[in-house]
Design a protein around this nucleic acid. Structure first.
Lengths: 224, 224
DNA sequence: ACAAATCGGTTGGATTGCCAACGGAATGAG
DNA sequence: CTCATTCCGTTGGCAATCCAACCGATTTGT
């Protein structure tokens, strides 16, 4: 198991856990490692899950099957990504997506109860692990709230400005870089790339915005 | 403090905490009660916060000030609602909204560190409180993910069907009630009420859907 | 340096949604 | 019962978005 230490310690879940504690911890948590062939199914939508999963090797797709049979990819998860943590931690249990191995994969499973129940030997890392878990869930909350904030706006112009102004606020500057290219930004705001480009040009022409590649500068307040 | 027991115990955060432990718990957590006049400001956007808040009396508005001065209400919080839990638990600290008292209000503040740090007397409720906190964050995650799933769809038809099919799946039946009226459903999906009504009529005409008030029945798979 | 691939801006026609306004049905108060 | 209110469906004109297609610029691989 030790071979996975470098990978796992880069996961937010295990942040701050030392190499020395590592093996003992995994044993104490009753972590189990399972392998899946390419195309194999980890969970079917609706399955009851009690373990969180951490991708060690390979790649997973969380997919949703439309009632008519169309399947759409909700997320892709690469090592050392977490999945099923929200369903498990919420106590809901029924997973709302199917999980399939897009490549031959190895996954580390940890039973949620073993995380939140202090073991008899009162392992020191338990509380650290729990704080990490809380941090992960809370952070995801923040990110999703922010995204909602933007997406619920009516027009592309509003969505874009909402996003850019938040970036400016976070960077504490009117001039900043964003971590997306055009297509990714369009996907994030769930609009068409071409329509986004068009709106950006208009904003530039209006003197509201200046940009070049993924560097942006807000010049003045936008009027509709 | 005991007077607040019935209210607070109805909060998911304190679920399962007995009356006997209650006062000791609040003292152990260093909970502090503060009052705000109508219109008073609890937090300004960007403030650094380390305490989660629980509304005991009154009502709060979480608001966001557009750079141009337009303020929009993000959420309304009534007793015994929680706020600032995500910012605090994520360790981000800078609150992304302003919090104002819409009415004269009383708020119970609890320092996050006191929750996740075991006290010297190893209070039994600590772990319960932590599990509750995790559950709250995770549940919010699930709800937001589901909403995203719907909202990111391109057309009203798709948004609506996405929502309804999820309801059907959850209720395990093609016939079910939803907890919204038209306006609320439109707000949830962030579309226009009238446009939603129109689309619903079309779906009914197409034989895909039947409904009456807030009772729905899915008749057959939708084709675009 | 050349070819191929990726990325981003532009354009025009079809689709879709927004908005404002109206009217009917249901509900509730006096 | 009558009036006022709320909820919901309908409609039409206008604005925004989607979609497909194209092209130039930049990047990447060889």
């Amino acid at each position: 198991m030790k071979e996975y230490f470098p990978l796992l310690t880069s996961s937010p879940l295990f942040a701050g856990i030392g190499r020395d504690d590592f093996d003992a911890m995994l044993r104490c948590l009753g972590a189990s490692l399972r392998a899946y062939p390419k195309g194999g199914t980890v969970y079917f939508e609706g399955d009851t899950v009690t373990e969180i999963g951490i991708v060690i090797r390979g790649r997973l797709h969380l997919i949703k099957d439309d009632v008519w049979g169309n399947t759409s990819i909700v997320t892709e998860i690469d090592p050392p990504g977490l999945f099923a943590e929200a369903v498990v931690c919420s106590g809901i249990g029924r997973i709302p997506v199917s999980v399939i191995a897009k490549e031959e994969s190895e996954i580390l499973f940890i039973d949620y109860k073993r995380i939140v129940t202090s073991c008899s030997s009162a392992c020191a890392f338990h509380s650290k692990l729990i704080r990490n878990m809380i941090g992960i869930l809370a952070q995801k909350n923040i990110l999703m709230s922010a995204k909602m904030e933007h997406i619920t706006k009516r027009t592309i112009r509003e969505k874009l400005l909402s996003y850019l102004m938040e970036q400016a606020r976070q960077m504490n500057s009117r001039s900043f870089d964003i971590p997306y290219n055009r297509q990714e930004l369009a996907d994030y705001l769930s609009v068409e790339r071409s329509a986004l480009s068009a709106e950006m040009s208009k904003l530039k022409a209006d003197g509201v915005l200046d940009y070049r590649k993924n560097h942006f500068e807000i010049l003045r307040r936008a009027t509709p």
